[in-house]
């Protein structure tokens, strides 16, 4: 019973504690001139490619942590300090950004 409760509790945490990558539009908009949430990122863990807007964003950390919706690997981390921003893209193989036609 106890372990079941713990399991259920953990499941609740996993499924209730995140938002969509859409939520990164504001914080990333402070750094980039274009909307990065419409870019396609490729996960370094499992290779899944999809819009940044679809990543699972956790913010109960000192910043934003965006995880792959398939493997839950960390794709992007962003911390906004008082006079600088840290952007960690170790978990993203690439970002494909929509651009105007040349």
């Amino acid at each position: 019973m106890t372990s079941e409760r713990a399991e259920w509790g953990r499941h609740q945490v996993d499924s209730e504690m995140y938002e969509d990558g859409n939520a990164l539009a504001g914080p990333l908009g402070e750094i980039f001139t274009m909307d990065v949430t419409v870019a396609v990122s490729r996960c370094a863990g499992c290779g899944l490619a999809g819009p940044v807007a679809r990543l699972h964003v956790y913010r109960h950390a000192p910043g934003w942590v965006a995880r792959c919706p398939a493997c839950e690997g960390v794709v992007l981390r962003l911390v906004r300090g008082p006079d600088s921003a840290w952007l960690d893209l170790t978990g993203a193989v690439s970002l494909r950004l929509p651009m105007p036609t040349l």
């Binding site: 499924s15 209730e16 504690m17 969509d20 859409n22 807007a53 913010r59 109960h60």
Partner: peptide, 29 residues
């Protein structure tokens, strides 16, 4: 979040292309 998760799964199970299902979840904060 739980609602969005459930409905998005239902739509895909009904045959909708996942790329046409766009979601916005409320976070805990």
């Amino acid at each position: 979040t739980g609602f969005v998760e459930a409905v998005a799964d239902m739509l895909v199970a009904l045959g909708h292309d996942p790329s046409r299902v766009k979601t916005e979840r409320f976070g805990p904060t």
